[in-house]
Simulated assay, not measured.
Amino acid sequence: MYQRVRRRKVAEINVVPYIDVMLVLLIIFMVTAPLITQGVKVDLPQAEAEPLDEDSKPPLVASVDAQGRYYLTVGANDKEPMSATEVAVLVKAHLAVEPGTPVVVNGDGAVSYDAVIQLMVLLQTVAGVPSVGLMTDSVEN
């Protein structure tokens, strides 16, 4: 007579398909990550700008004048012109003491777009500001 061979059940999971999916996702993320991080995130209003709440902390205002000089204003205190890196370092120090303080950029209409963008990039990379706002004048009809 035939002897029955008893096979033991295998309690292992075949992980090869999971590894394939993981490698495909890794390649997708490696390709798309540089495309996502190349822009500067700016919170622009879609219609009319709303003023900051009066109950919120006074904002840090990083300004660029028509000659390309940088200033940092806290509340109503104006300071001497400084480099963009100095502004970013001062903002970082202020945010370490008072986190959650809003940061806005006030750019003169005659200043180059590059000067404003460079300041925003420094505020995000050096100072670690999560969101940089743009300051505007109200439209009078």
Score class of each variant (00 low, 15 high):
residue 121 V to C: 01
residue 89 V to H: 00
residue 38 Q to R: 14
residue 117 I to D: 04
residue 129 V to N: 07
residue 75 G to L: 07
residue 7 R to M: 10
residue 33 A to V: 09
residue 112 S to V: 08
residue 58 P to Q: 09
residue 23 L to Y: 10
residue 31 V to Y: 07
residue 59 P to G: 11
residue 68 G to D: 08
residue 4 R to H: 11
residue 122 L to W: 00
residue 86 E to C: 00
residue 64 V to M: 09
residue 63 S to R: 13
residue 29 F to T: 14
residue 94 H to E: 15
residue 38 Q to H: 08
residue 141 N to V: 14
residue 28 I to D: 02
residue 51 P to N: 12
residue 67 Q to F: 03
residue 47 A to F: 06
residue 98 E to D: 12
residue 103 V to L: 06
residue 21 V to S: 12
residue 109 G to F: 07
residue 62 A to F: 10
residue 13 I to K: 04
residue 29 F to K: 04
residue 86 E to M: 03
residue 29 F to M: 12
residue 128 G to C: 09
residue 2 Y to A: 14
residue 12 E to S: 11
residue 116 V to D: 04
residue 132 V to G: 07
residue 121 V to E: 05
residue 108 D to G: 00
residue 121 V to I: 15
residue 63 S to H: 00
residue 3 Q to R: 14
residue 80 E to T: 10
residue 117 I to C: 00
residue 90 L to R: 13
residue 43 D to R: 08
residue 24 V to L: 13
residue 34 P to K: 05
residue 133 G to R: 14
residue 46 Q to C: 00
residue 37 T to A: 13
residue 91 V to W: 02
residue 31 V to T: 12
residue 9 K to T: 11
residue 51 P to R: 14
residue 25 L to M: 15
residue 25 L to H: 03
residue 59 P to F: 11
residue 22 M to S: 15
residue 68 G to T: 07
residue 16 V to T: 14
residue 103 V to P: 06
residue 89 V to F: 04
residue 129 V to E: 07
residue 37 T to G: 11
residue 50 E to D: 07
residue 133 G to W: 08
residue 50 E to Q: 13
residue 106 N to C: 07
residue 34 P to F: 06
residue 140 E to K: 12
residue 83 S to Q: 04
residue 10 V to E: 09
residue 6 R to N: 05
residue 56 S to D: 15
residue 109 G to T: 12
residue 97 V to Y: 02
residue 2 Y to C: 01
residue 53 D to L: 13
residue 128 G to M: 09
residue 98 E to G: 00
residue 126 V to G: 00
residue 137 D to K: 12
residue 56 S to W: 05
residue 24 V to I: 14
residue 6 R to G: 04
residue 92 K to E: 15
residue 57 K to Y: 05
residue 53 D to A: 15
residue 104 V to K: 10
residue 138 S to I: 13
residue 135 M to W: 08
residue 91 V to D: 05
residue 45 P to V: 07
residue 13 I to R: 07
residue 65 D to T: 06
residue 35 L to T: 04
residue 46 Q to N: 06
residue 59 P to Y: 11
residue 14 N to M: 02
residue 32 T to P: 00
residue 86 E to D: 14
residue 115 A to N: 08
residue 11 A to L: 10
residue 32 T to I: 14
residue 69 R to P: 00
residue 45 P to A: 14
residue 84 A to D: 08
residue 126 V to P: 01
residue 19 I to A: 15
residue 110 A to N: 13
residue 70 Y to Q: 03
residue 31 V to R: 02
residue 57 K to G: 02
residue 141 N to H: 09
residue 87 V to M: 03
residue 109 G to M: 10
residue 98 E to W: 04
residue 90 L to T: 02
residue 84 A to E: 09
residue 127 A to L: 06
residue 66 A to L: 02
residue 51 P to Q: 12
residue 48 E to C: 02
residue 51 P to I: 10
residue 18 Y to C: 05
residue 37 T to R: 09
